[in-house]
Amino acid sequence: MAKITASVYSSHVPAIGAAIDLGKTEEAYWKPVFDGFAPTRQWEKENPPDVVFLVFNDHATAFSLEMIPTFAIGTAAEFQPADEGWGPRPVPKVYGHPELAAHIAQSVIQDDFDLTIVNKMDVDHGLTVPMNLMFGSPEAWPCPVIPFAVNVVQYPVPSGRRCFNLGKAIRRAIDSFDKPLNVQIWGTGGMSHQLQGPRAGLINAEWDNAFLDRLINDPEGLAGMSHMEYVREAGSEGIELVMWLIARGAMDDVNGGKAPTVRHRFYHVPASNTAVGHLVLDNT
């Protein structure tokens, strides 16, 4: 049977992608960010997943205002890196896992989460930047990826509770897939940041670190946090953090198993406008 072996959490700041693409990762501004992910890159080499289920948000790339799906699962065989206005990022094509993705869609929809099924979607920095942070810049990505896009652009976004429970449903779906796959689930976005208006540049390090603590030790309680607390304390774009709760809901300890091991934790300010947070929780 397939199994969720670990969850990985990370910001997906576009400027990190630009720093990689322009060869700036050794510059003083960027080096601490990339060094902060080095232990995870090593850990990923030693514990390679067969598939990554990658929760991210589309930033007005694949989805304009014509259609705004709250939860969209990518069931295609492949996904092209998107042209977000600067030209497509020079990263490998992303290969999907249509069989597992279709299985998850069928299971999760019957579990009362009405997913949108997407067979054609370009993927933006929300997906490709975490891939670089965890896997470096290889010629080809080391495993297939199931992109799972969450609407955090138009308010209201799904609640933390809804995301957490969805993670549990995804976990049940993966548990019932009849092939021995090692699946990692990644939650991306955040941490505190605001990209608009006179409050742009907001960072709340104390709140971010409390969020990381609670994500590890009190995910159930954290799932009850209101939209307004995210927006007020972590900025209008900090609300992306609800996506981390999808990954957290899929872990052993909240599904009757034992507590995860914290393999790595990292926090850094700033990457462009944003606080970078990162966590690796291991079920094994």
């Binding site: 505190s192 742009a200 907001l202 390090a205 700033p270 406008n273 606080a275």
Partner: peptide, 8 residues
């Protein structure tokens, strides 16, 4: 931003 961003 380098100094830690805008305070809450």
């Amino acid at each position: 931003m380098i100094k830690g961003g805008r305070s809450i």
